[in-house]
């Protein structure tokens, strides 16, 4: 199977707010792929996952379970959680065999961050 080539340029939507029915691609198709990345769903979150680096042994179970591909991995290590896309569903905390992920109230987590 051939690999999809990386897209050369982004879809130019600089003035899309003004687009009428005639300007769009037929059938509401978006003429590029991989654009779910542009949709930041982190704002939906009411609970934030907090990982304990001491307990985590990089088993990657959370990586496979995360429905939003929000577990960031580099060099076989679980680096951190992508909070721009994490919706706070808590699946990672549920599946973690070492209880290394705790779900914190988002407002409390923000306040902790401010301190």
């Amino acid at each position: 199977m051939s690999k999809t080539k990386p897209r050369k340029e982004k879809w130019n939507i600089s003035d899309i707010q003004k687009w009428g029915p005639g300007r769009h691609e037929m059938g509401a198709t978006i003429p590029e792929s991989g654009n779910a990345d542009d949709y930041e769903t982190g704002g939906w979150r009411s609970e934030r996952p907090l990982r304990d680096r001491e307990k985590c042994n990089d088993c990657m179970i959370c990586f496979f379970a995360c429905p939003d591909s929000s577990i960031r991995v580099e060099n076989d290590k679980m680096v951190d959680i992508d909070l721009e896309h994490c919706k706070g569903c808590g699946i990672c905390a549920q599946v973690c065999p070492r209880d290394a992920i705790e779900m914190l109230n988002e407002i409390k987590a923000c306040k902790l961050e401010e301190k």
Binding site: K5, E25, T29, I30, P31, S33, G34
Partner: peptide
């Protein structure tokens, strides 16, 4: 038109 299998021109359908 805008075939999902055309890897030369990737598209998103049903967004």
């Amino acid at each position: 038109v805008n075939s999902l299998l055309n890897v030369e021109k990737p598209v998103t359908v049903g967004a």
